[in-house]
Write a protein that binds this DNA or RNA. Structure first.
Length: 589
RNA sequence: GCCCUCGUAGCUUAAUGGAUAAAGCAGGACUCUUCUAAGGUCUUGAUGGGGGUUCGAUUCCCUCCGGGGGCACCA
């Protein structure tokens, strides 16, 4: 994989640009309303307060206006609240009030919430979809496994974060290109070829390709400790490979083919798909011309036997693009890759979902892109924290200190299987097995996606396999229970949503209304934790609701059906939201 | 040494510069004759230290302390 900084945009702005670019949903509506009431353009921000007694929505604009106009904030807020009340569509709010020190708080009316719920219910398939990405392409690069190495827990993060972000952008109407940039080129393959020539066994590789190859690689590094000359040998083999040596080429192709087969198996287990598998080797043919061009334009120069792009003006160390032996480097291939993508696909944005440890590489890449005028897309390094070993240190393949993805998946499924046996032993074996798979995988994915991607994760079996509390299975459980109620209810007949006036019912209605904005936020910030938390809060509100409110037994059919509409809508949002996170929602659990 | 990143409850984490810092786990007390107890209810408990900007700072700036990662012939 790309071994593994703050997102870096192409203009070399160091800070993440997280200003709103999509905007759809209630906040946007209220912002428009305030603008109208204000009668002037002002940077208006509407938020959702932390406490229910401060309203459904809130704005601090009065305090900023007060500072500008030199008036008491609360007075400005009161004045503004009055104006908005006048401008607001009839029946939209039940209350708009000014609160000290100068907030304006908004409460949606029951009537309005009911109207919105009806919309959500009627458009259940499309609810959450945005249009802002229409006609635009985004390339999301993620997973990036290395040929001849087993995928480990580190790959899990890039793969599921990338997959979720791709889903989220798609939901907003973008055409998303899911790109698996394979680590299939570089000195490591010289080392591997060298190792194979020393100790390789054709039959053993055939039988168990990746494990055998990986063992060879680890042995090579071990032996290098006592035989340092091996290092040069590895480099030489890579140089030969890059020069077109038939024997090395053939070995490389073989290793690559076998590796891809095994990767496919894992992706199938993970439920992840890619549109394009183009790895580093694809760009080999562009290396010579690219380096020549960089030199011609005066961007690159010789240094210490190799060739570098000086990047002082970006306050960065020089970027090495050609080694003294003439071999190309990771960065060189990435520059070629970027140019290729921009030309062929014309994306508006490219996301590189790669660990924090590669921050410098991407700073250098983006700086080089600017020098070359490759500025037609916004480039973002979507960084994530490392998966550290239990002792809090980096897991390294070279030393053989890793936890493999397959083992994690297996263990999660096994644990889920035990729990299904205990909780739902009367289900068929086939169903139990399927539930164990979905729940085990859901637990792993949710556990990761619920944390901010910048956070380092210390590998911990127990936490990874958590099946209760804020977890994937909790959401799946809620979904399955709602499904069960709706199965038993039969067709929902006529209903009157006016019945949905209890506190818990209003909480759910309001929560459903926030869904589109949560998706938008995820896309703006390239995060999944907000969406994961949102779904948990929705599920929690729903669990509290049906815990105390029997739905099917209700004699009042109109009220019964209204409640069914409510939980059916919640069920659909849960399903769609989980789907965006790449988590399946089972009908039974 | 330079750069990136993180520091919030016993543990793992949330919080566009806002109002009473939010959860989960673990601990304690309840809760299944009632649509799945993988649930629900109650409860203990926190912003590393020091400055600054601001009406308001977990958030921005400076500094110190601490963890993790990176710094031209690996990817």
């Amino acid at each position: 994989m790309r071994k593994s900084g703050q997102e870096i945009n192409i203009c070399y702005i160091k800070k993440e640009n997280t200003k709103s670019q999509f905007h759809y949903g209630m906040k946007k509506e209220i912002e428009k309303l305030i603008k109208k009431a204000l009668g002037k353009d002002f940077n208006i921000e509407v938020g959702i307060p932390a406490h229910a007694n401060f309203g459904h929505y809130s704005t601090n604009i009065a305090m900023r206006l007060a500072a500008e106009e030199g008036k008491p904030p609360l007075l400005v807020a009161k004045d503004l609240a009055e104006k908005i009340n006048f401008e607001a569509p009839k029946g939209m709010f039940s209350k708009i009030e000014a609160a000290p020190p100068g907030f304006v708080n908004f409460w949606l009316s029951g009537e309005f919430l009911q109207k919105e719920l009806k919309n959500i219910y009627k458009n259940k398939k499309s609810y959450g979809e945005g249009r802002l990405g229409r006609g635009k392409k985004v390339i999301v690069e993620y997973s990036q496994p290395n040929i001849a190495k087993r995928m480990h827990v580190g790959h899990f993060r890039t793969t599921i974060i990338g997959d979720a972000l791709a889903n989220i952008f798609e939901e907003l109407g973008y055409k998303v290109i899911r790109w698996n940039y394979l680590g299939d080129w570089g000195t490591q393959f010289g080392k591997l070829i060298s190792a194979y020539k020393w100790w390789g066994d054709r039959e053993a590789v055939k039988k168990d390709p990746i494990n055998t190859l990986q063992a060879l690689y680890v042995r090579f590094h071990d032996e290098m400790k006592t035989r340092p000359e091996l290092e040069n040998e590895g480099r030489e083999e890579f140089r030969k490979l890059e020069g077109g040596d038939p024997e090395n080429r053939k070995l490389w192709e073989w290793f690559r083919k076998e590796s891809l087969k095994e990767f496919e198996k894992i992706y199938k287990l993970l439920g992840v798909k890619f549109d394009i598998y183009i790895g580093e080797s694809f760009f080999e043919k562009y290396m010579g011309p690219l380096i020549a061009e960089l030199e011609e334009k005066g961007l690159a120069k010789k240094s210490e036997g190799g060739k570098i792009i000086p990047l002082e003006k970006f306050n960065l160390p020089p970027a090495l693009i050609e080694k003294s032996d003439g071999a190309s480097l990771y960065l060189t291939r990435d520059i070629a890759n970027l140019r290729y993508r921009l030309k062929k696909y014309r994306p508006v944005e490219i996301l590189y979902v790669v660990g924090n440890e590669q921050a410098l590489h991407f700073e250098q890449l983006f700086a080089a892109a600017e020098l070359l005028g490759l500025t037609s897309a916004k480039l973002t390094h979507v960084k994530y924290g490392l998966v550290l070993g239990e002792e809090g240190k980096k897991l390294a393949t070279r030393e053989g200190r890793t936890v493999f993805l397959e083992d994690v998946l297996g263990k999660a499924t096994e644990l889920a299987q035990k729990i299904v046996e205990k909780k739902n032993s009367d289900l068929s074996e086939k169903k139990k097995k399927e539930i164990a798979r979905v729940v085990g995988l859901g637990a792993l994915k949710y556990n990761d996606l619920k944390e901010h991607r910048h956070t380092d994760i210390v590998f911990d079996w127990e936490k990874m396999l958590s099946l209760s509390g804020q977890s994937g299975p909790y959401l799946q459980y809620t979904y399955a229970r709602l499904s069960s109620i709706l199965r038993k209810s039969g067709r929902i007949g006529s209903f009157d949503l006016k019945h949905l006036s209890s506190e818990s019912e209003i909480t759910i209605q309001k929560k459903l209304l926030d869904f589109p904005e949560e998706i938008e936020k995820s896309a703006e910030q390239f995060t999944t934790n907000n969406l994961a938390l949102y779904l948990y809060e929705l599920a929690n509100a729903v669990n509290r609701f049906y815990e105390l409110t029997p739905i099917l037994k209700d004699e009042d059919k109109s009220r019964r059906n209204a409640r069914l509409v409510l939980i059916d809508s919640a069920r659909n949002v849960l399903k769609k939201g989980l789907g965006l996170l790449g988590v399946e929602a089972p009908e039974e659990i």
